[in-house]
Design a protein around this nucleic acid. Sequence first.
DNA 1: CTTCTATATGAACAAATGTTCATATAACGT
DNA 2: ACGTTATATGAACATTTGTTCATATAGAAG
Lengths: 195, 195
Amino acid sequence: MARTQGSHSDITGPRIHKAALKLFAQHGYAAVSMRQIAGEVGVQAGALYNYTPDKQSLLFHLMHGHMDDLLSARAGSKRVKDALENLRQFVGFHIRFHLERPDEVFIAYMELRNLTPENFAAIEALRRTYENDLEGILRDGVAQGVFAVPDTKVATLAVIAMLNGVNTWYRSGGRLSLDQVETIYWDMVRKAVAL
Amino acid sequence: MARTQGSHSDITGPRIHKAALKLFAQHGYAAVSMRQIAGEVGVQAGALYNYTPDKQSLLFHLMHGHMDDLLSARAGSKRVKDALENLRQFVGFHIRFHLERPDEVFIAYMELRNLTPENFAAIEALRRTYENDLEGILRDGVAQGVFAVPDTKVATLAVIAMLNGVNTWYRSGGRLSLDQVETIYWDMVRKAVAL
DNA sequence: CTTCTATATGAACAAATGTTCATATAACGT
DNA sequence: ACGTTATATGAACATTTGTTCATATAGAAG
């Protein structure tokens, strides 16, 4: 029986966000219409506006939610004294967290320019928070004399860029297991910052 | 004096491509209209169709041209015996080439999903050619016993991802000179693949 | 000067866009 | 059983979209 008007649906909201996530990741924010999102949910376009004030908010909500998830998941990791161990922990966390959410990650990197200036600033602040986390580890390592990086800011961005790259090619069930991928990347990161 | 109809303009073609390049990089392919491109050139939208059959061709032309430039510039570099030297050459080339063309690079990475399947395949083939170049260097180094990389394919993608990251933050006239940037990245790449 | 051709205009097209709103109705509280 | 309310419809809106085409004209060729 088709969903008819008036029927309650406490799950329509999440379904809209899921549909938007999938479609934005697949075709890009600007290329996806509200009608496509509605169609994916099985509803008319007008109904979307019971759950979001506009299309822009839909995008912002997705990106902000993703960054919140990232930061709170990361906050669950406890720091130890050893900078090398902290770095290893970071690399493993980053790879696994990002590979589990390819669509969110893709959107968070590709759709920044489609945010309004205020929304962009908000997301950027969260991203910087995350980067500062890694930079802190690198600085600690330098202070402890276990890392040799001439510029911690550049090294931070370089490491993150390298790790993000895994999302462009890794497919579960492929040639390499998640553990192997993690080992390979950790090996490169470790050496890259080594003495 | 405003440009009027009928006036010749053997430079309109290049100007259209430049305008499309700038606008696509700034707002994204899907978010830019033919009228915006025409406006940037100072012409009506209809005139664009004297130079391109459609919007998609405009995008494809930009990306294909960029990849051609990349491959022929790279072909100018001569390989030597020493794999480490070849790698250093590659890193320097990549950073400088990409920093000189931020808009083209941005488009080449962000707008892949807006290509038709055939156009996408063509661009991907060119990209793989470039990646194979680096992978060949890494394999040589492994064979020579000067590199330790467990998986040359992954290492190739990791190195390129790391180097591409520089485009997201480097601004000429900023804190670091181009030479410094090159040195820092070369240092990290060298160590990452070292024994 | 005349003819020809390349190039630009500007109006027109159907289709698609984000968003609004009056209307309808299914489920919940009483 | 009944009224209330949250939720969905579907039509409507003003714009904007990519693209086409008849028309006009400036400059090159003769």
